[in-house]
Design a protein around this nucleic acid. Sequence first.
RNA 1: GGGGCUAUGGUGCAGCUUGGCUAACAUUUCUGGUUUGGGACCAGACGACCCCGGUUCAAAUCCGGGUAGCCCCA
Length: 474
Amino acid sequence: MKEEQTLGITAKKDEDFSEWYTQVIVKSELVDYTSVSGCFAFRPYGYAIWEKIVAEVDMRLKKMGVQNVYFPLFIPEKLFKKEAEHVAGFAPEVAWVTHGGDTKLDERLAVRPTSETIMYESYAKWIRSWRDLPIKYNQWNNVVRWEFRHPTPLIRTREFLWNEGHSAFASRQEAEQEIKDIMALWKEITENYLAVSGLAGKKSEAEKFAGAEASYSIEFLLPNGRTAQGPDAHFDGQGFAKAFGIRFLNEEGKHEYAWQNTYAITTRMIGIMAMIHGDDRGLVLPPNIAPVQIVIVPIVFDKGSKEILAAAKKLQTQLSSSRTKLDDRDEITPGRKFNEWELKGVPLRIEIGPKDLAKNQAVIVRRDTKEKKAVKISSIAREAEKTLADMQQQLLKKSEKFLNSSIAVATGIKGIMEAVKGKKIGKAIFCGSKKCEEKVKETEAKSLCITAGKQGKCIVCGKPGQTAYFGKSY
RNA sequence: GGGGCUAUGGUGCAGCUUGGCUAACAUUUCUGGUUUGGGACCAGACGACCCCGGUUCAAAUCCGGGUAGCCCCA
């Protein structure tokens, strides 16, 4: 290996995590910096991963009867301020449009930090009778939250991409059922596609979504000991319905307020995945989410290169059930290609050269374990499929192991503090009240989520509580 | 919120202390040739001082402001 590497990763994941992370996501061409602080460009490779997440989530939402819509980017100030808790939660980080050209606007427009207010104004118009319900709408869009804390690409950004699902139901039960369905969907996407294991549960009073009655999320531990909230689902109760007048006539001819939910998954998940799976050579992408699952690198010589290229092309055809790329560039050497594709995290590499051709085989190399294996060409498709499936599983298992070995049981605030200092998640019984949360927040930790698990006495106040997780959050 | 550091071709960097000739080196990219089982070699070419202002005969270099990035502490 040479000293001056401009292509590869020079920082070690264990030694300088933030430098490592920046190099991985920039050099693998997922994203890049722009001249706007906290706002990043998605490059084709990174955007392809997002498109895959969108496709999988969207398909499943549609199966649940959700329809896609689109609402304005701008929200008039008065409308934005209609629901008190909601405003209080978001106001500090709203970006405002004050002028059109040189003309000052009569009313400021908020750049949406989330779309409850602008959407629910319309919901109030559209919902009249119990026959109009349920409404299950979703939009894929961008939102802006003007953070002042240090941005981290993909993880904490001022603008990000997400979906926002907004439902309205005639009954509490239906709304609560949808929350369960959505949380199951988030579990499936994060585990079976992104291969990351997280902690699912309910947010505490202090940490729940502004305006919601209850919030649920999946929380992830990152290799630097910090945690990040993944996808979430909020049971809004009738709070927004009352603020925005979302009423309907029930079957008895009486007015009732709708029961509502909101839910989201964001581009942050790509950052979480990159941090958890990546290694000192670069990204490691789970096969189910990888834009390229298999890259074929022909080991080409001047003489006989035609035969090898032909064999490589044939391989590509055999492997067409996977997302397969043939790297037939002739201006760089195979070794260079190996490094490039490893940096980009492509799950499988298949090498085919003269020695292989003579033996009627090819060499399969796994990105996660770096394991090499010579396989007969006749059985390559089966072997590749098997290896991809295995890698997908192993990555999730590895992530589960990392999470489970990083949970420390705490019997007091001190224990939580120690857990967080040791780059772990503290597990303790917690009542979830704002008062107790404040005491915990005097340390660096905050509550991540509360599970429906073990009952007991809150480690802060001694009142009845449940198992909760604590960490130092992004 | 407080403190510190940094910004020079696509990338990584030298030069800045003590202002001065054509801004060095490596890599990338392009052209040609030789090569190719883990970041190939030779030759040639393209390509940069973050922005605004100040000091000066002269600014990458000194001063002020801005923007962007990073680190540490709360």
